[in-house]
Design a protein around this nucleic acid. Structure first.
Lengths: 253, 253
DNA sequence: CGGACGGTTCGGTGCTCACCGAAATGTGAT
DNA sequence: ATCACATTTCGGTGAGCACCGAACCGTCCG
């Protein structure tokens, strides 16, 4: 029990992994985070209904998530909007989800089953495209030499040209600090899809040019007729990737 | 309460984020995982002592972590060795640690303080180099055009040449499936360092050529005299990155 | 000024789980 | 065979926390 400079620096800092994990270790809070992976801002009430808990319970969860730095909040009038804190948060969440075990959940209605199939087919993942469509895009771009698998996954020169030809300015705005190409393990298909700045730019482009349209309240994306033509012409995507009904049935267990 | 094909597919699968997070949400289990980030295999007893809990408690924790897929175990005789399940696990853990809040922990002895300073200076992170040294390497390689920051962080042509000149065969053995260059947010310095296959190869090379030596029981790396010369000649690393005593004092709060 | 609405605060309840010690198991060494 | 050692099983204890309902507090609308 030796004293030694006790005043100067008798304490150090360690990352508190357990504290962060504890935030996600609850079913309800995890569900909230997964919902927010659509990249949008939700009100406390919407999340309460989505997670099927009382409003008061939701308040407590949101307080924890916000003060833990996972969520950013914005109060407007009597409403409280929350969103994910940033892209890194979203990426870490997706990584975790890819590593997590699967859990069987009952499907209670036909509507829910259709919704699941749609999610499986195409959905947003924070600010880029995921699901079978996202995986197909990444695969096709690699196939055509726009992405190179040699060094991880990078944009090739022809890939950069392809992007500018589409009208996507390579030096995007808020893009500076993020990796241009980043892969993200898809939890429905368990295969890589495109995230990072390029993935985000591509999604923005697809939205603006009406290739896909996003449902208001869910993460489901629908490929429009224009989009089908564009994806077929420019990337040669197969029909399975373009029509939800043709989607492969979910893998067993 | 409408029935509809109830037999065929009345259940679906979702990633159980909460279940995975719950594994890390405990102080003791988190400590165990952080310890295993040294990339080695520990026995149950060693971990019990490290985490300062009873052996029986450790058994329970290890059971959970192994069956949750985070740890791999190997039983040899009456001993139980555990290690991290794989590189993805290690990378996800480091990402999480980078996102986690900091916690002040008391430093009780001079030895512990020295140990912390050493960790801060240079340590292993699963299979590559982290700490101030790791950050300095990544910075110097970017500086010298071996890594390009343009597209995320990729190996440039001169970078690949530099590696082969060192004698690091670019097409490494178990390297195929991992991204060659990957950055990893350092939790001591909060800056990027080099992980992925290239990071791993570099660390292996440094070990084999006696640039650094690893302490047996901890994650601390020591830069040898040979290493100092090599790092200075080949990457122009400054003295701060090479001598632990010159390390910057830890940032306040 | 009501009155509806979105959110918050508070007390209380029940369940989960990390922990330990003591006894049991199984392996290795003598 | 016997003893030491690493780990496991089991019962019991205590603390933490997710949840709800009821009351409360701002904000928006008529």
């Amino acid at each position: 029990m030796k004293r030694w400079d006790a005043d100067q620096e008798s304490a150090a800092e360690t990352p508190d992994l357990a504290a962060l994990a504890a935030l996600l270790a609850d079913r309800t809070r995890a569900a909230i985070c997964m919902a927010l992976l659509d990249g949008g801002a939700w009100t406390a009430g919407e999340l309460a209904e989505y997670a099927a808990v009382a409003p008061s319970t939701t308040t407590e969860h949101l307080n924890l998530l916000v003060s833990g730095g996972l969520l950013a909040e914005e109060r407007r009038g009597r409403r409280r909007y929350v969103r994910l804190a940033g892209p890194e948060t979203a990426e870490t969440l997706e990584n975790l989800a890819g590593l997590a075990p699967y859990r069987r959940v009952p499907v209670r209605s036909l509507a829910e089953a259709n919704h699941r199939r749609a999610l499986h087919h195409a959905r947003t993942c924070y600010d880029h495209i995921a699901g079978a469509l996202g995986v197909a895009i990444a695969a096709a771009m690699t196939e055509r030499g726009l992405l190179a698998r040699d060094y991880g996954l990078v944009l090739t020169v022809s890939g950069a040209n392809w992007l500018t030809a589409l009208g996507i300015s390579d030096a995007g705005p808020s893009v500076a600090r993020r990796a241009h190409v980043r892969t993200c393990l898809d939890w429905t298909v368990r295969r890589q899809h495109l995230s990072g700045a390029v993935g985000a730019a591509l999604y923005r482009h697809a939205l603006e040019h009406d290739w896909v349209s996003k449902a208001l309240t869910t993460r489901v994306l629908t490929v429009t007729a224009t989009g089908r033509r564009a994806f077929r012409d420019r990337l040669g995507l197969p029909d399975e990737a373009l029509y939800p009904s043709l989607a492969l049935s979910p893998p067993r267990t």
